[in-house]
Amino acid sequence: MSSTDKKADFSDVTSKVDTTAEVVPKADFSDVTAKVDSSAEIVGEQQYTVQKGDNLSKIAKNTLGDANAWKQIFEANRDVLDDPDKIFPGQSLKIPARQG
């Protein structure tokens, strides 16, 4: 740049932003309550803590008397189990009531 070149002068440039968006107050959920009613009876359901070496068939045999009942245990615990082959020591599982 030579000394005769003029530098751009932006000193008098101003900016203004107009918006049509509404300013919405944050939602207030402080008075929200929840209640769950169920007509299902949980009779005979128990909790079982997985031990080292356990699998669902072994747990089913020991708790329900039928190794094939592992599917019932898996279905009762779908909230914590994605795979019937992946259970871990220390996990707490729901054991459903024996099927008549």
Rank of each mutant, 00 (worst) to 15 (best):
S11N: 15
D12Q: 12
D12E: 15
D12H: 10
D12L: 08
V13R: 02
S15R: 12
K16Y: 07
K16F: 07
K16R: 13
V17Q: 13
T19A: 10
T19F: 09
T19L: 09
A21P: 02
A21S: 10
E22Q: 14
E22S: 15
V24R: 08
P25Q: 14
P25T: 15
P25E: 15
A27R: 09
A27N: 10
D28P: 06
D28E: 15
F29D: 07
F29C: 04
S30V: 06
S30M: 05
S30F: 08
D31W: 03
D31Y: 05
T33C: 08
T33D: 13
A34F: 13
V36S: 00
D37Y: 04
S38E: 05
S38D: 05
S39A: 14
A40C: 05
A40L: 08
A40H: 07
A40E: 10
E41T: 02
I42L: 07
V43H: 01
V43S: 04
V43Q: 03
G44N: 06
G44I: 03
E45Q: 03
Q46I: 12
Q47F: 05
Q47T: 10
Y48I: 03
Y48C: 00
T49N: 05
V50M: 04
V50A: 02
V50I: 04
V50T: 03
Q51P: 00
Q51D: 03
K52S: 06
K52D: 02
K52Y: 04
K52Q: 06
G53A: 13
G53D: 05
G53M: 11
D54S: 06
D54K: 04
N55W: 10
N55M: 09
N55Q: 13
L56V: 01
